[in-house]
Structure formats: C-alpha cells, structure tokens
C-alpha cells in the first residue's frame, strides 16, 4: 500500500502549524518526524490518523483489495497510553485487540500472549495495569501494535519513558512489521535507530520526504 499526503496545510486553534507538506510512503518504509517542540509533529500524526481534517491538501491511501479508511488502517500510539488501571495488562490488551479487529470471539489468547511477550510483559499479564510503572505502561500500549494487525503504525514519541532494552524491543517490532510490508511513521526528538528510515524535519521550512 501507498500513503500519500499532498500539499498539507494543518491548523489548530486558528494557527497554521504545518504549511504545505507532502509525504509519500510505501510498503516497508519508515518515516521519522523530527523537529523542535511545537513544530507540528503530533498535529501531523493526528491528521494522518484522521482526527484532524486538513485545511488544504489531502491524505490518501492507495491500496488494492482494501477500501477501508485511513483511521481503520492505522495504529495510533499517542502521548497517552489508553490503559485502564482497573483492568489487568492482558485484559487491557484483549479489549483493544478485540475492539480494533471488530471481533469479540475471544480466541486470540495466543496472539495476546505473543504480543505481551514481544514487549517483555509476559510475567505481568495478570497484574492490574494501575500497578505498572510508566515504562511498563508504555510497553503495554505498544503491545497493541502486535496484538491487532494494522498496516500503518503512527507512533508519537514511542520511546518516552522506555529504557534501552525496551527501545530495542520496539525497534525489533518495527523491523518485523516493515519486513512484513508495513508502514511506520514515528515522531521523535531523540534519534531512533530505524534502518534506512526517511526523515522529515519539521520546522519553519518543511522539506518533502
């Protein structure tokens, strides 16, 4: 599949945050959004997820045999983890997997265990998420990526509060997803070691990727 953004103008609260940005991303590619605070990294990700309609320009996806909308093809992992403290780690994940796949049959036990394992949470599966540390919660949020299949990953500062070992887990997951033909877009202000990723530096003058 191919993700194309053309001539995007995004504004929030009456202020133009992104002015004339174009992107093009195809199977297996990764894109890093970098730039100082307030340059519109989160705004761009929210637009790509379909939350914020662009003032000008368009975002479209070219995909044979699939006409779902962008919002339904992407995983959005934002600043906030979307985790309920009163549910256990595996319950949190099971809900998101069932909800995002639109399937409540509940026969995804293996997939859930596998997803937790990928992010080093297997031992914490039955612990209420409220007891998890910030980094563990972050990993639980990221394990959504493995629990439900979505071709496009939108990650906003995915490494926030992660230690070095967890960052490696994330990079492994990203590499596996890309090897599978998936797309990854991550906003970050720290260097992220994705292999030959494109980079767009947001700021006063955007450059097209």
């Amino acid at each position: 599949m191919l993700l194309i953004a053309e001539n995007l103008v995004l504004s929030r609260g009456g202020r133009t945050v992104i002015d004339g940005l174009s992107l093009r991303l195809s199977n297996g590619e990764a894109l890093l959004l970098t730039g100082a605070n307030g340059t519109g990294k989160t705004t761009l990700l929210r637009a790509l997820a379909g939350f914020l309609p662009p003032a000008v320009g368009e975002i479209r996806i070219e995909n044979e045999n699939d006409d779902r909308e962008l919002g339904e093809l992407c995983h959005f992992v934002g600043h906030l983890d979307g985790i309920k403290p009163h549910l256990t780690a595996v319950e949190n994940l099971a809900f998101w997997a069932a909800y995002l796949d639109g399937d409540s049959s509940g026969n995804g036990g293996d997939r859930l265990a596998c997803a937790l394992n990928k992010f080093g949470l297997a031992a914490l599966a039955d612990v209420p998420a409220g007891y998890l540390s910030a980094g563990q919660k972050r990993r639980l949020a990221l394990s959504r990526l493995a629990a439900a299949h979505r071709p496009l990953w939108l990650l906003d500062e995915p490494t926030a509060s992660l230690d070095a070992a967890s960052v490696t887990l994330l990079i492994d997951a990203v590499n596996a997803h890309r090897a599978d033909g998936g797309l990854v877009i991550a906003a970050t202000h720290l260097p992220l070691a994705f292999e030959n990723a494109k980079e767009v530096r947001l700021g006063p003058k955007e450059k097209a990727a």
Binding site: G50, G71, F76, G82, I83, K84, R144
Partner: peptide, 10 residues
C-alpha cells in the same frame, strides 16, 4: 487517558 483516540481508529 488517550483511549478515545484509539477508539476512534477502530
């Protein structure tokens, strides 16, 4: 807690 964003991508 950010769940609404994820709900919206469902």
């Amino acid at each position: 807690d950010g769940s609404l964003d994820v709900l919206a991508t469902g």
